[in-house]
Design a protein around this nucleic acid. Structure first.
Lengths: 204, 204
DNA sequence: GAGGTTTTTATCCTTATTGATAGGTGTTGG
DNA sequence: CCAACACCTATCAATAAGGATAAAAACCTC
């Protein structure tokens, strides 16, 4: 399996190339940054199985464009490697922007391989204090059953009134759920919440 | 390359298996329907490179659940094969629901191979009257530059006011553009438009 | 330059969304 | 039992969004 790594540090690529993903060898192709990675995928990305972006600048201003360039190459699972000091908030933002896995620099090769294996099987993975956590979506910001149902309605473009009718509850109740969802997803409004949910795979 | 085909007709699988994608042989694995396809992918979908859904019922009621089940297996490009009599509207709905390619039953093996090759390279493909049309998104429902810019703002969860400020135009102008986008995308509202745009890959 | 599209602005109105605050019911687990 | 939680409802208020119609300026193309 072949992994495209965007990093300018040799020890990062070394760690990934020495990992084993689903028991098979890992072939690493290295590019210096996200922009180069996007160009590489655009040229001929067929044989690339996964992408790992090494981000050193984790400010909000730097995070957005890094993802904006690479996420156009849809279909490839994208992992992000963050500095050790990255906060939970940054991890969350990476998932919101479409990352499939979030790693940290201080992980050992074995954990990297395990995380990338889970990622390849379609799961979402995060690392927290060195431990591999599958599907952190529900851990970081937990939505209740009803909130997920309402969110699904929002993503379908339904109005509060329509959602209320679907579940046979009052519109005011839906409003409350929508507000809760917006707050928990740290969204600006329902549209933003829908996009975040879509990027996180919370809705189909 | 391995393709999972959901169809109960032998001549469909035969056509695909006799096609050549990027010059290489095609190995077809057949399942009877979309639900089975989703189960197959859930079990172990790593070696599957693409999915082809053969839809005989193209009514709105049938289209939605067919995609709902399969689209959860993200990361794999999904092609749809429609009956010959499928309308442009149905093609559009397939793309809106996340299909990467839309084929018709009356295509020959060569065109199927060409379309699937384009799909594998990340492009969106449609067929119309037997001809392969790359990136039909812009053909079917053309959005102007400004409308795409405004749509991008909507997808980021921005308000009309904020979008207006970004482009240094009046809010009322943004409202007009948003309404135009909603109409062209056949969306119910801005949230729906944002989700459609996301599914179509109109925004990054 | 005539005709087309795009983009822009305006005014009027209706409806939807968001926010805050305050309760009520029901279930579950320590 | 009671504390925590999910869930439901209510009222009041401010803002945002959606829809219709009209029209002017900028641009491109034939």
């Amino acid at each position: 399996m072949k992994v495209l790594v965007a990093s300018d540090l040799a020890n990062v690529t070394d760690k990934i190339s020495s990992a084993h993903i689903n028991g098979s060898e890992v072939y690493v192709e290295q590019v210096p940054d996200c922009v180069q990675a996007e160009q590489r995928l655009r040229m001929d990305g067929r044989e690339i199985d996964a992408v790992v972006l090494h981000l050193t600048d984790i400010s909000d201003e730097a995070l957005k464009p890094a993802f904006a360039t690479i996420m156009r190459s849809r279909g490839k699972p994208v992992a992000v490697m963050l500095p050790r000091e990255a906060s939970v908030s940054v991890v969350w933002r990476c998932f919101v922007n479409g990352a499939q896995a979030v790693l940290t620099e201080d992980m050992d090769a074995k954990d990297v391989g395990q995380a990338l294996s889970l990622m390849q099987s379609g799961q979402r993975v995060a690392t927290l204090d060195g431990a591999v956590i599958p599907d952190p979506t529900l851990i970081v910001k937990k939505l209740s059953d009803r909130e997920l149902q309402v969110l699904a309605g929002v993503c379908k473009g339904l109005q509060n009134k329509e959602i209320a009718h679907d579940f046979n509850i009052k519109e005011v109740t839906v409003k409350m759920h929508v507000r809760a969802v917006i707050r928990k997803l740290e969204a600006k409004n329902r549209t933003h919440a829908a996009m975040i949910a879509r990027n996180l795979g919370l809705v189909s």
